[in-house]
Design a protein around this nucleic acid. Structure first.
Lengths: 125, 125, 125, 125
DNA sequence: GTGGTCTAGACCACC
DNA sequence: GTGGTCTAGACCACA
């Protein structure tokens, strides 16, 4: 994992974990790496991971058990999707809108392109 | 301008110039900065800019006049749009598709979100 | 201000600020001391104050304007009261309950004591 | 046991002992730790404990038998309750009153909160 | 071991 | 100046 400069590292880690949850790589009630462990894996300061975990807990995506570790919360899927969707709407949607406008791609054409891509993926399977 | 790590810098510069054209910041037949000039502006090696210009010429987006400099070609708009659109389909569309799937956003919902964002922009004007 | 050891300093600062708001010492839309300023006043590390402010912002009690400072938010009164009330119920109520039980003070007697104290206060005015 | 700064330590020890009596941890006529013993337990100066014991004797909560030690007096329960109740009224009640006022909690609401908490406790048993 | 907190000091972007 | 982030290293309570 390498970090870009546009967004704080701790939020990039939050995203990284949200994806793990949304793609069911990390499942409900499962223990996740300890603060120190993940910090070593990602080559960042433990405080930075702690900040990510603190943020995820405030969003009720993970829960902590003192002296034991952090766990994916039972309603993580819903919470993570909610958080990530807001991010999409606030950050990615404007960029997409700008690109579509610049390239004169109508919503209708975008739909067709998405369907085409989906078929292509299925064809490759 | 800061460069991501995902793509060669010379292609990122190509993109940068395509946007200038598509957003009509640089207009048809207009002279564009010299290789050395732009290299200084972007803090990159002149060779890198030269490679970008070479690529843009091969796409018929710019033309060169020996001893004078590079110019936006007469059909730049169309060519740039074509090039950029291919890029969108090959690179951005798959990422968008993945995100939409992950967040359970249907094409229909995406349309609505785009319309909502458009209205918000107009409202802010 | 001196800190006890039972509770994190950053939460004691949060409490300190909530009181300022609830008692209308700091009013809506008003600028509050900068992170560094308050840190000096309270003789704590700026990071600790930053953590308090970050927490208060997450509770929508204060808002930040980048490069300018923090401000009491418009609905601070309501938010601060809500936060402080939860704290009362979770932390102070159990202690009160324990004391009342230990001293055989019935809710009825507590009411009378409170009324008596109120009258005493009014008498002193 | 760790001491707050608000009150003399010897009075905090008095409180500590009153609680032992009120919660029937130390029972009537029972011998209590010697001055030196308790001083070691609480990591305070023996003089401080001596002062506490002296105060408790003046309140007729404990009695001393020369050369033997201190004992919980026969009417300790009543005396301790009386002493502690005065303390509650003089020190804790004003703070409670202030908090209730600040948070707009009526005596009626306080009653309800206490009942609710009592039920919660019983539920947990 | 775990997480939670705090300090110290650094650099950045914004105004 | 302001807040925001990150690192480094320390100590604590809990289990």
């Amino acid at each position: 994992m390498d970090f870009n400069n546009n967004q704080p590292i701790y939020l990039q880690i939050v995203d990284f974990i949200c994806e793990k949850i949304l793609l069911s790589v990390w499942k409900q009630e499962e223990k996740i790496p300890s603060v120190r462990e993940l910090a070593v894996q990602l080559s960042v300061n433990p405080n930075t991971v702690a900040r990510s975990y603190d943020f995820l807990r405030s969003q009720e995506i993970i829960t902590d058990k003192r002296g034991i570790g952090y766990f994916i919360s039972s309603n993580s899927m819903q919470q993570a999707k909610q958080y990530r969707k807001n991010l999409f709407i606030e950050q990615e949607l404007p960029l997409l809108f700008r690109t579509l406008n610049m390239l004169d791609i109508t919503p209708d054409e975008l739909d067709k392109l998405l369907i085409k891509y989906k078929r292509k993926l299925q064809h490759e399977k």
